[in-house]
Design a protein around this nucleic acid. Structure first.
Lengths: 216, 216
DNA sequence: TCGTTAGTGAAACAGTCGTACCATATACTC
DNA sequence: GAGTATATGGTACGACTGTTTCACTAACGA
């Protein structure tokens, strides 16, 4: 009885809103301009999502979903040398098509530093990479549950992305990644040519999520 | 003739405003709460700084100045092994006392990605490290004008800071840095055990500042 | 046609924002 | 005292914010 609901409209709005946020960023997001760009009204945005906060959460989830899909279909297995795999990851993540995602990623991180209470599972966005990258770089890992290698690889990629997005120095960042790939490649060839006491298998898998300075 | 100007007041306000921004972040900064916390009025803030934008610029310059002072007095020369130097840099930058600076740093970067026109010299904040770090890690550089090694070192530090501030995983990030230090150390011992054709001295010093997608 | 539910436009509300205007107070020289 | 430049308080403006309220239409089953 009554007019049937149309969930497709909400999905369509969500998709277009995600496009909009990827193009314009999260910081200055406002309902009225967003609604105007989406050929709808702030009234309908609240009708569909309840509040701006929930809308943002839905948009971020959608963006994450899109990024995850693109990634898994791009990193199927470990093929080629360490350098080739690393270069592949870097080329994919630093490509111009990924720039909106990278930008949103940094924006969310920065906002999460000021308002950590709004992003309860942001740490998971980091640790989720472990399984994927751990499998990709198994030959240069220190053990089956090695979290240090994925941590370092992702730190290099994120740090270089930070540099690239700030300076635009494509050549310099490309070469820096090559240098890292070379370092990592050597460690595979000579696993213990120089014994270092600090080298040991890591046991910890998931670290507690920052229970330090903000007691909230 | 007339009442003498009191430039000390502006300096005092700037110092306290910088404290406030380091504590509360840049994103939600508003004149009225800021003025209230500084025992002054929005009227005086505009009187001293002209506009909010100029105030923010002054605060960022002051924050950068503070950070630079602390750094130069902490990294005097290259002492100890590569690992020790790298660990020293990491320990200093990831210390809790630096957290407000790191947070502001990431916040400015994220805002710069959305509004690059507001940060004309942000690329310099990256390339400024080259001289300092180039001197610190001269023994593992590929040449006197090597920008790749400082780029990679800073990328690792920034990427791990990104991880640490998100997940709070102190132990895991510490170990990841140790792993990188080990990789870098080996490359010093065996400078060319494995010849790689891609290895060569970099000539470019300062890259053009991202004149790509935003023609403004 | 009527009842019922979903969708939607317009307007208003209560608040915040940066900033401008106007008056006045303060501290100095002459 | 007058003259003058600096410093400051108070207030209001116009533009924005997320959200709410009221009225209304659209689409269905009975």
């Amino acid at each position: 009885m009554g007019r049937p609901a149309d969930p497709a409209r909400r999905e369509r709005t969500l998709a277009r809103a995600t496009d909009y946020v990827l193009a314009h960023g999260l910081a200055g997001l406002s309902l009225r301009p967003l609604a105007a760009a989406l050929d709808t009204s702030p009234r309908m945005l609240l009708y569909d999502f309840g509040s701006k906060q929930e809308l943002v959460a839905a948009v971020l989830a959608e963006a994450r979903r899109r990024g995850a899909v693109r990634l898994t279909e791009h990193l199927p297995a470990q093929t080629g040398s360490v350098q080739e795999r690393l270069r592949g990851i870097w080329a994919w993540m630093s490509a111009d098509e990924r720039a909106p995602f990278v930008r949103l990623f940094f924006e969310v991180h920065a906002d999460g530093l000021v308002h950590p209470e709004n992003y309860p599972d942001q740490g998971q966005a980091i640790t989720d990479w472990f399984d994927t990258l751990g499998a990709t770089f198994r030959d240069v890992s220190t053990g089956p549950d090695d979290t240090v290698t994925p941590t370092l690889v992702m730190a290099v990629v994120r740090g270089l992305l930070f540099d690239l997005t700030t300076t635009g120095a494509r050549h310099r960042t490309d070469r820096a990644l090559d240098r890292f790939a070379e370092l990592l490649h050597r460690s595979a060839d000579e696993p213990d040519a120089h014994p270092h006491p600090g080298r040991q298998v890591v046991v910890t898998r998931a670290q507690p999520h920052r229970g330090n300075d903000r007691p909230n």
